[in-house]
Simulated scan of single mutants.
Amino acid sequence: MHQLKAQPALIDQVHEQLVAAIAEGQLQPGQRLTQENVADLLGVSRQPVSHALQMLKRRGLVIEHGRRGVAVAPMDGAQIQNLYQVREALDGLAARLAAMRVEANLADNAEIENLKAAFEAGNVLDDKAAVIDLIKADVANHRALHDLSGNPEIARTVEEHWPQFMRSMAVVLDTSGHRAQLWQEHEEILSAVLEGNAELAEALARGHAKRAGEETAVRVGAIE
């Protein structure tokens, strides 16, 4: 995190910085936060920090911790599995719609190229790549697929929960075997979409999300 310049949307800036720090693992589950230390870290007053922490509470990213403090919320295996069940349906729908748009020549070429580029950016990362780089590449790939679907409500629905997905993904992507499987599945989904095979694209996307959710829930449950 870095210090922020005073602007009218300062509360939103503080909120975004804290969300990113939690999602990317800079702030770990159970880590205590106070208005004072966050304000000092970001170079702002305590007022925007107080509002931002309330926003994080409503999102389930922090919980009460003692007097005048909060802590980063622990990860919950059951919640993660529930979120992935929603992702399974939405990713399947996104893949189907994207393939249908490609087949009907309705997809914007820039959106297609964006999906290809997102896939390649992750595919070139090797076993030495930092986990956070793999997570960001995975998120970018899914966002590009959601965009190609032509249904903006898919991206809007998932966007709220990316921080929970991102911090839970770290416990799975620390193994090279899973990394290779992840991008192989992304490649299969990409191929089906570009071929305009809506049925296959949906099945692959749903299977990908289902497997990811089950494994992530197990891993998260093991460290709760």
Rank of each mutant, 00 (worst) to 15 (best):
A107C: 11
A205I: 04
Q85V: 01
I132S: 08
A78K: 07
V193H: 06
E16Y: 02
A94M: 03
L106E: 15
A9L: 07
Q184M: 11
D12H: 13
D138Q: 12
M55S: 06
S168L: 04
V220D: 13
R87H: 10
M75I: 07
I63C: 11
L61K: 09
L134K: 10
G196Y: 10
P29L: 08
G221K: 13
K210H: 15
V62I: 13
E64C: 08
G196W: 05
V44C: 00
V218S: 14
G30M: 15
K57N: 07
E214C: 03
A118F: 00
H51A: 01
L200I: 11
R206H: 07
A129L: 03
I63V: 14
P163V: 05
V19A: 01
E199L: 12
A9K: 13
D76I: 00
V218F: 15
L10W: 00
R211W: 08
A89E: 04
K57L: 15
L90F: 09
L204W: 06
T216P: 08
R219F: 12
L42G: 03
V86L: 14
A89R: 11
R211T: 15
V172K: 15
A121W: 03
V44L: 00
V86A: 12
E202A: 15
E202W: 05
V62M: 05
V38W: 03
